[in-house]
Amino acid sequence: MAGHMVSGKVERGVLHPLAVARGLGASHTGTEHWWLQRLTSIALVPLTLWFVFTVAQFAGAPYGAIVLWLKSPLNAGLLILFVAIGFHHAAAGLEVIFEDYIHHKPAKLTAILIQKFFFLVLGVVCVVSVLMVALGR
């Protein structure tokens, strides 16, 4: 039982057994940000290719063609996922840019909060827009 020996060693150290189980450091937060960036990027690979190569076929197409396209539950559903996951990924990416380049802590926090709210509002508005076209007469 090698696993037991390893955990036994750690428990005799400075860490509380609960801290060992959680696997989190002094910041008390884990790798959620990093993991979500990976998870969203994996989802965005097929979604982005689908979006670009589908919408490219609508170049110069009349309004009615786009409306008809969004009447399909599959298309509307995928577009909503593209918006939700894409905007989350964008906000997470911009957060890192602010963390790297803004050194004044209050300004950094303010910038991150403003951009998070901005993408949340814009994302919800875009999702509602998709639904309005999809569910409209």
């Binding site: 309004y63 786009i66 409306v67 969004l70 577009l79 918006v83 894409g86 905007f87 964008a90 990416g93 911009l94 814009l122 508005v125 875009c126 509602v128 827009s129 998709v130 309005m132 076209v133 409209g136």
Partner: peptide
């Protein structure tokens, strides 16, 4: 891509 997102938002909101 953030700037492109704004164009995308304009596009889909206009469709609605």
């Amino acid at each position: 891509l953030l700037l492109g997102t704004l164009l995308f938002a304009w596009w889909i909101i206009a469709a609605a």
